[in-house]
Amino acid sequence: MDWDDLRVFLAVVRAESLSGAGRALKCDAATVGRRVARLEEALGNALFVKSPQGYALTEAGGRLLPHAEAAEAAFAGAAEELSGTGRQLTGQLRIGAPDGCANYLLPQVCAEICDSHPGLEIQIVALPRVFNLSKREADMAIAVSPPTAGRLTVQKLVDYQLHLAAHESYLAAHPPILSRADLRAHRIVGYIADMIFDKELDYLAETRAEGVGLASNSVSVQMQMLRAGAGLGIVHDFALPFTPGVVRVLPEEIGLSRAFWLIRHADDRRSERLERLAAALGRGMRREVARLETLAAVGQGVGSPTRAVVAPGL
């Protein structure tokens, strides 16, 4: 069995089309089709069936998949060993993450990793949904809850805190908020209900509000709404130092704790390079969350002198 044919097989599995696999492999779809046919002939089994949704694995293809992925991991490990990447990490790493993490944590963490490993190229893909690692949309993904199915390796990265918050201008222009009951008179900023892709993001119950007045599927957009004085919303403490004027409201009454989880394909545990990158990512995330939450607790912005902020009406 030819490794190049297995590589083509994996590309079709992940792209679910010959043309998509061809783009990934930098060859035409006809060549991909011939290579798949050659592999099927050698194995004596059909590996794919074409459907309206694209190319789907047959039962035989499903049995071949873990072996092909193991071969891929073995080849990658051999390349790492021979190139000496045990000392300096090189190559490309794509990290998928929800946009709050991608906007407020990963830029600093990844910059630090790249400073230590100049030959490394890191790509951050920020999407408000769950990543499909089987299709290699990313090499590793960060999620707000651990998956319960699939051939995946899952490790907890860090706990983080969230609180109700609003801009000082909004608080100054609206009735005081002394208890949860007072929130009924205020506009709530939050997620679009039918676009919440993880139950851990459903914060509405914490405010006891009947609905969201301004909504977005993006954490960053929600934060911009708060900066514009549009209302109150549940926000990450680690984002507050980046948003001057946005302060916590009822912090003793309304507070949430969540966690980020690092998700990788199970076979990637065999790669020393990815193991080291995962460890570096975890260390950096824990340091950065601790640093930013400390700044948020004292009302200090990034790069600003320490200042204590008390929301009007509290």
Rank of each mutant, 00 (worst) to 15 (best):
G44V: 08
E72Q: 13
V8D: 07
G301K: 03
G22V: 06
L292E: 02
E81H: 08
R287N: 14
S17W: 06
L82G: 13
G150R: 09
T85G: 03
D198L: 10
E168W: 01
A68D: 05
D194W: 06
T306R: 14
L89A: 06
D139K: 06
R94Y: 12
V246S: 07
S220D: 13
G100H: 03
K135R: 14
H186G: 08
R151C: 15
R273S: 04
W261A: 02
D194K: 14
A46S: 15
P107H: 07
E288W: 04
T243M: 15
D2M: 14
A209N: 03
G61N: 09
D4F: 13
V49T: 13
F9K: 04
A143P: 05
P128Q: 08
E210S: 06
N217K: 11
V125C: 12
G33H: 14
Q300P: 07
H67V: 12
G231Q: 08
E72H: 11
S169E: 04
R34N: 15
G100P: 02
E275W: 09
P147E: 12
V309E: 08
P98T: 10
T294Q: 13
L240T: 03
V158T: 13
G213N: 02
G86D: 05
F48Y: 04
A166D: 00
R283V: 13
E272Y: 06
M140K: 06
L64Y: 02
R270M: 11
V235T: 13
I124K: 01
Y170T: 01
K135A: 15
L64D: 06
D159L: 08
G62Q: 15
G62Y: 12
G231Y: 02
E168H: 03
E69R: 09
V302Y: 03
P107C: 06
P98C: 10
E80S: 05
Y170S: 00
C110P: 02
R307C: 08
A24V: 13
R129H: 10
M223P: 01
M140N: 06
V12W: 03
V154D: 12
L6S: 13
V289E: 04
D115P: 03
N45M: 13
S83E: 12
L226C: 10
L295F: 10
K26Q: 15
L47T: 00
P176M: 05
P312V: 02
P147N: 12
I192D: 14
C101Y: 11
L164R: 00
A141W: 02
F48M: 09
L183K: 03
I122M: 07
T148A: 12
P244V: 10
Y191I: 12
L18H: 09
V130C: 11
E210R: 06
L204R: 04
I188K: 11
L214N: 01
C114D: 05
P312L: 02
G84L: 02
V247F: 05
G119C: 09
I113C: 02
G282I: 01
T31G: 12
